[in-house]
Design a protein around this nucleic acid. Structure first.
Lengths: 339, 339
DNA sequence: AATTATTTGTGAAACGATTCATTGAAGTGA
DNA sequence: TCACTTCAATGAATCGTTTCACAAATAATT
């Protein structure tokens, strides 16, 4: 691998100064057309590519924003990444997508990597409930935006979805279809989302004059398909008093669906099913899944835009905002009212 | 955002020279324990984080390897990313995962981004059939490894899975279950994978003494669930002469499954179904999907390891290798022999 | 023609780390 | 005490850009 050609080589080859070459690249209109063309041919001929690290060193910060998510296996986060990526590219930034896999220590490692890289900013769904990782990261002065998490204070921006509203949407839908006892396949109790969605469901039940006992909770260890499968088999015993199931997550719902199907329980005939997130595979299930759609792509995009505003040219007039997006119920076969 | 603290600030604060601070970080045993401790406290006190860009500028190349995949919405590639990430981190490198979305122009953009970043190397599943993008990228002298693609020559490393063998596995399985007319839901004809899997299937049929017409091809525009749904409805007309379906991809198979289910066609009773990739959602389908498992994580890991070898300290003795991994049939309910 | 603007191009000083030849001090053996 | 080695620490050069004050040449105005 021979020595990389630098701006100096181009300058020599074109018979101009390095400053001029730099101008051709960054401020083309400051250079006369003739020299511009001459420099350009030199660039092409030599195959010159500018060194991002040198540029960065000078600029003080990089043209990369980081996105740290909880689980890249979950299509929900893939969508978030898509949205962020699009917004970032429009602004000429790249996105470095990383996966903390819910581990606070991995999260910490990535955060210090980001600090070393002097990334423009970080979009993060925290894995560390204590907030220690974020607190120590904040000391570097690199801005970050919380994704899929709310903040009370105004020290950072955040973009989240109203999970209480989402839970209410799901439960209201089931109640209005005549269900009076609903199972809630929840996830790990320490997750705010899981709690909020339950809270929403309870509210909807209360609205309809149903007691809290109408919601039967089935906790799970994790928010994945396997946990759903497990919950599904536990569900079988709750029939027939339970006639509908609300899952904290589509992955869980898919697992539940599979269990029910294997047991010969018909969805929605015997048991109505509602998921959450509306990932692509929800619509693709054998019985298309009713789900609460999270505007994941929008969330990613808005988070990126907030960060861009905070780090952009008019950063001064930036005020931290806590955006709360509204979810939307997508009704499909899995919750159709049986006749 | 105040000025970043640099190595100089640490040096001043600890009363030593910059060289010494650098040594504390990079060659701790060259520094006496006392000064080392003094410098360390200064580092902690000031919250110093070294600038990766400065380090890179000096070193000439970065500590990042790039991974450019075709579709981050496909869990197969998410697994590839996982494998690559793990191997890279073990070597102290970060991975930048990017999505060309099958678009040659996006691919080109990313490749030039990688060149600017002077990434250590690139793992890529090419989107550009012509090979032009890669050819021009190769001129930068940055090594790359082909993922999920074979190479004939020995100018690069590659890691792929034997698709002919995979196609044969699937077809042989169906034939041995007594099926004599099989539909092949293929994808875009220009994809080598799609062609190889058909080739394998044809071979298996020939082995069993069946004519090539036993394989009925249903082409699709894309390798996703929607295309599968569409193929599924086209399939309905082919019954009952066709008794089994082999899909080039699990996403297609899930779409097919959904169509069949909606039409009241029983799987595997009326129609046996086999997918390809064995993504997580294949096992999670209502009727768990028989699928040809691709060692995706292994593929990502091996690709990364080949790259590390090629760019590592003993790069001299590196010989390009073309690794061909073997797929494996995972039999589940969707192809159980009906009684 | 003299003065003032305008347009192009120059070259040196950053940016923040690493490296390496060199110095200074302390220790060793004769 | 002198020469010699060993161990620590130094400081300047370097990496490849961008920026900016300045010079030179050209055009516009009086």
């Amino acid at each position: 691998m021979g020595r990389m050609v630098g701006i100096k080589d181009v300058a020599r080859h074109a018979g101009v100064s390095v400053g001029t070459v730099s101008n051709v690249i960054n401020h083309p209109d400051m250079v006369s057309p003739q020299t511009r063309a001459r420099v350009q041919t030199a660039i092409d001929r030599l195959g010159y590519v500018r060194s991002e690290s040198a540029r960065q060193l000078r600029a003080g910060l990089s043209r990369i924003m980081a996105l740290l998510v909880l689980d890249m296996g979950n299509p929900f986060f893939v969508d978030v990444a898509r949205g962020a990526e699009r917004a970032a590219r429009e602004a000429g930034l790249g996105v470095m997508v990383c996966n903390s896999a819910q581990s606070p220590s991995e999260e910490a490692e990535y955060l210090s990597l980001f600090a070393e890289q002097r990334v423009r900013g970080v979009l993060i769904t925290p894995a560390d409930g204590s907030g220690n990782n974020l607190a120590s990261f904040a000391r570097h002065g690199i801005p970050f935006v919380l994704v899929d998490r709310q903040t009370i204070d105004d020290t950072t921006c955040s973009v989240a979805v109203d999970d209480v509203a989402g839970g209410a949407l799901a439960a209201r839908h089931l109640v209005s279809a005549g269900h009076t006892t609903i199972a809630y396949v929840s996830g790990p109790g320490h997750l705010q989302q899981v709690r909020d969605r339950r809270e929403g469901a309870l509210r909807a039940l209360a609205e309809a004059g149903l007691p809290p006992e109408s919601l039967v909770e089935l906790p799970t260890e994790r928010l994945d398909v396997a946990a759903g499968r497990d919950a599904g088999s536990r569900l079988l015993g709750l029939r027939p008093s339970v006639t509908a199931v609300f899952c904290a997550n589509d992955l869980l719902a898919l697992g539940v669906l599979q269990s029910l199907f294997a047991a010969g329980v018909h969805v929605p005939g015997d048991l109505a099913l509602v998921g959450y997130d509306d990932i692509e595979f929800a619509a693709a299930a054998a019985v298309p899944l009713t789900s609460v759609r999270q505007p994941a792509v929008t969330m990613g995009r808005m988070a990126a835009e907030l960060l861009l505003e905070e780090t952009g040219p008019d950063a001064e007039q930036h005020r931290h905002r806590n955006v709360l997006l509204q979810p939307e119920l997508v009704v499909r076969d899995s919750s159709l009212t049986p006749r």
